[in-house]
Amino acid sequence: MELVKLEIIHYRATMKEVFETSFGKTRIRDTILIHVIDYSGEEGWGEAPVDIGPWYSYETVYTAIHIIKDYIASILAKHRVIRDPWQYYGLVKIVRGHNMAKAGVEFALWDLYSKLQNKPLYKIVGGVKNKVEAGLSIGIIGDLDKLIRYIDKGLEKGYRRIKIKIKPGWDVDPVKRIREIYGDIPLQVDANAAYTLDDAYIFRELDKYGLLMIEQPLHYDDLYEHSILQREIKTPICLDESIKNVHDAKAGYALGSYKILNIKPARVGGLVETLRIHEFAKKHNIPLWIGGLLETGIGRAFQIAAATLPMIKYPSDISESTRFYEEEIVEPPWTLNKDGTYNVPDKAGIGVDVLYEKIMKHTVKTINIKL
């Protein structure tokens, strides 16, 4: 790949409705889109799904722009010819942290690399499935009747697993209500680090309801206290925010901090690190699934590709294009089959066309860098 241009796009869209987690509400969604162009004219697209503020992660729209413009672009300009995304992964190791910024550019390189190889991305990364299972993630509703209506719609759509966000005061009651109405449907909860070990009694109570897993119950950087909690409860703990790379996955495994891992490719720094974690999980028979960060249709393509890997054993958080945003920026849009799966595109690259004009309608700022 001989890169001639890097475009950084600050994209902003209004969501159809508020999405609430334990750390806040989102209605206006900011993200960073990455566009690279090869000397041949071929293009690659990626997304760094950061937020406007440091809520899920310390990374924000502004830190991502800074890291990509002032550091990653310089690395790309210095080398210009990048053999493949693995080489890029090695070059940007000099930048500590800032995984989402690094991932956004890496994703664009994966798309470009796959197109130049004339192969679909999922085959390039070693995917083995032509369909991937989808689960529905529901924010903190705060209204049990409204929650049930959301679940009804999700089950009608075919989603194969229901996940609800929880926080203190919104945890046992909604789970109990769901079990009373729907029986033993696949169900899990996600705390987004809202609890402490003092709340272990809540998780012992949740043990009664046969959950698939409890996702990230304790501190977002913790491994040790999760190992204590996992010994106290039967329900598998799934780690999310605590796992930023394969080293965290290894440490958590040695401590007994989790039984399942959620991999968000952007959170761990891209698909190369995703593959490294996947290889570790394969060696130790650790089940995985792919998480999401309210991505646009561009970022969703990388979730789909990662979800084709063999150790992905649970439905992944991949919602339809139309769920969050009024207007999709890829064609065709990501549409769920009636059986709760997505078809994995066989087209070269990420498998969808990016609608540049639609992106420009919602662009706050564009930075073009010649390489």
Rank of each mutant, 00 (worst) to 15 (best):
L275N: 02
V4M: 12
A306H: 00
G252T: 07
N192Y: 06
K208G: 11
P236M: 01
A64H: 11
F302Y: 13
K69V: 10
D84R: 01
S137M: 12
V81A: 15
D317S: 12
L112T: 05
T21M: 11
E20G: 12
P287W: 01
G256A: 06
I34K: 08
R80H: 15
I185V: 02
I185N: 09
I37H: 01
K358Y: 14
H219W: 14
E295C: 08
I304E: 01
A77H: 12
L294S: 10
L212R: 07
G127A: 01
T366L: 14
K259T: 00
L116C: 03
R96V: 15
D51P: 10
E279K: 15
E225L: 12
F302W: 00
E2W: 10
V125R: 08
K234W: 12
L91T: 01
R204K: 15
I369S: 07
A73G: 08
E327K: 02
A191D: 03
D38V: 01
D30T: 03
Y88C: 05
L3F: 07
T31H: 12
D111K: 06
I75Q: 09
L109I: 05
I304A: 03
P345S: 10
E320N: 09
T60P: 09
K365A: 13
I286H: 00
P168A: 04
I367H: 14
M213T: 09
D145P: 07
I298K: 00
W55L: 15
D184L: 05
V354D: 08
A191C: 04
Y195Q: 06
K264S: 09
